[in-house]
Measured scan of single mutants.
Amino acid sequence: SAVVMEEGSPGEVPVLVEPPGLEDVEAALGMDRRTDAYSRSSSVSSQEEKSLHAEELVGRGIPIERVVSSEGGRPSVDLSFQPSQPLSKSSSSPELQTLQDILGDPGDKADVGRLSPEVKARSQSGTLDGESAAWSASGEDSRGQPEGPLPSSSPRSPSGLRPRGYTISDSAPSRRGKRVERDALKSRATASNAEKVPGINPSFVFLQLYHSPFFGDESNKPILLPNESQSFERSVQLLDQIPSYDTHKIAVLYVGEGQSNSELAILSNEHGSYRYTEFLTGLGRLIELKDCQPDKVYLGGLDVCGEDGQFTYCWHDDIMQAVFHIATLMPTKDVDKHRCDKKRHLGNDFVSIVYNDSGEDFKLGTIKGQFNFVHVIVTPLDYECNLVSLQCRKDMEGLVDTSVAKIVSDRNLPFVARQMALHANMASQVHHSRSNPTDIYPSKWIARLRHIKRLRQRICEEAAYSNPSLPLVHPPSHSKAPAQTPAEPTPGYEVGQRKRLISSVEDFTEFV
């Protein structure tokens, strides 16, 4: 048969007729292969192709491409040299491709048809291009793949890379869960390890502090508590009631339409708007009261037996805890006409967050109470924005700035309102402590230090009264110190430094 060459192609190359033996071998191979691939376009007849790359030819070592076609129900084999250009295909004639002069020997084609199974398996396991790669995943090629499931790999992101949580363990979102698992493993320790309690022994800490320079003076030496005195035992138990972190309780009120001037209507609300609910979820963490331990979680007086509701929101960081007394989460009882059960919590909070959804101005004093010092007013606006402002009593104007209003988005509203309420509550605590000038409020841990110092002074006084020969370590507060001759004046800087060093040991009130 003659071949018409394309323009620009090399000279004529004689194409030899395939021997009958080659056709029989390739026909047997075509019957084993699956003929249901995917359909081509209507211009080209339905056909199945599979590209198999052999590394070497037997005796020649030339890479070839073998295409199996099922045109007219008769499979045909096409061998081509890759750099050459194939002729145009037609549905009426068999596929013809040019070969190099080196394939002119018909014996070479017979060798190609009689490829060993080793070469076929190696060509099938190679990388296939384009559409033949999808075909190689079918059941027909499963014989050339190794048996057994593939090893499982770690989760992959859409980009093909490992997620960040699997790369950096410290930033993994499941870090707290692993800590819980470690605690569970520790709890399952053997009885021999049960006595080993991690941490620092208080006796060891005391020993280090006792021999430090801070205890060089007799006034700073630790003293032993009497065991037989019940009054001192009660004082030590009272110390446990003062937490070592700051605590805040903040009221949250929802004002519906037409309720801006009605205290009873505001306290009777059992739910609010959708934006109000989203605002609550951002204030803190939802907790169930019956599962809380009052000595570990500050509840601000809420009952854990269901008297004040089942849930509330709280927030904490390293040095403070805040609980929100939310009116809509507290039960509304029919027998309580004046809502006294709610007001006994909300009316005693220094700061209230008022979500004013009424469309009218909310005035300070609508919720009557002796300790309502500051109101954080949240007014929802259009386009997911809110107006946040402050209202306070006249005696609080020096501590709280009420002249600045803020426009905040719904997303950042819980954070801004919480921070403003916490700052206002700190100012309210300082303002409330002014009624007792001898006990200015600095912080909870300073209050613990003052309680310890008062307890020490009482013990020293009782020891001096029981044994008059012992001198008083600290003179009583009601006694007057003996007159001392004025010492020589020293520079102001040295006096300030000495006073600062003494105050650092005794108390921190002056620095606050």
Rank of each mutant, 00 (worst) to 15 (best):
D410V: 00
G309W: 08
G496E: 11
K363F: 07
E461Y: 10
I367N: 03
L470G: 15
G284C: 06
A427D: 00
L501K: 06
Q419M: 15
S273V: 00
S477Y: 09
D317S: 03
G492Y: 07
L238P: 08
G282A: 03
E228G: 09
Q484C: 14
H338F: 14
F279H: 00
F279Y: 00
Q391W: 05
R448G: 13
N372L: 07
V495Y: 09
H478M: 14
Q241L: 07
N372W: 03
S403R: 09
L329M: 07
S352V: 15
E270G: 05
A327Q: 04
L224S: 14
C340W: 15
A483M: 09
Q497S: 11
S403Q: 11
G369R: 05
S262W: 03
K406P: 15
S231V: 14
L381E: 03
F415A: 03
D349T: 10
Y441T: 14
K249W: 05
S433A: 14
P380W: 00
A464T: 12
V408I: 14
R344V: 09
G309L: 13
S273K: 01
P468Y: 11
F508E: 15
L286S: 06
Q241M: 12
S504L: 10
L264A: 13
P475S: 14
D308I: 08
A447M: 09
R450S: 12
N467I: 14
V323D: 08
D439A: 06
P226I: 13
K296Q: 04
A487F: 12
T490I: 12
A405M: 14
S273L: 01
D295V: 04
P222E: 12
G256E: 01
S433H: 14
S389T: 09
E461H: 09
Y441F: 09
S466D: 10
R500F: 09
Q259E: 03
A424D: 01
E510R: 07
P486F: 09
Q230E: 12
V408F: 03
F508W: 11
A322Q: 05
I367K: 02
P486Y: 10
R434E: 11
P294T: 12
N261P: 02
G496M: 10
E462H: 06
G301I: 04
I242F: 08
A405F: 12
I407A: 03
G284S: 05
K337H: 13
E494I: 06
Y254P: 00
T438L: 07
S443C: 09
I242W: 06
N269L: 01
L280V: 06
N412R: 04
A427H: 12
K406C: 15
A417T: 11
E488P: 10
Q237C: 08
R285A: 15
N425C: 09
T490R: 11
P476D: 15
R418I: 04
V495S: 15
K480S: 15
D318E: 15
I446Y: 05
S262A: 06
I326L: 02
L472H: 15
S262G: 03
D291E: 11
N220E: 15
I353M: 02
P442K: 08
K453S: 08
L399K: 04
S477E: 15
F311N: 04
L224Q: 15
H432I: 09
L381Q: 06
V255H: 01
Q237S: 11
D341H: 15
L413K: 01
Q310K: 12
V473H: 15
I353H: 00
S244R: 10
T366V: 13
Y274P: 10
M320R: 02
R500N: 15
I440V: 12
D295F: 05
S479P: 12
N356E: 00
D318S: 08
K444M: 05
P475N: 14
V376F: 00
I407D: 02
D395R: 05
A322W: 09
N348L: 10
E263K: 02
T332I: 10
E494L: 07
D217A: 08
D334S: 14
H431Y: 14
V376E: 00
F324P: 02
T509R: 07
F311H: 08
S443V: 14
Q484V: 13
R450I: 04
A481D: 12
L346A: 05
S260V: 12
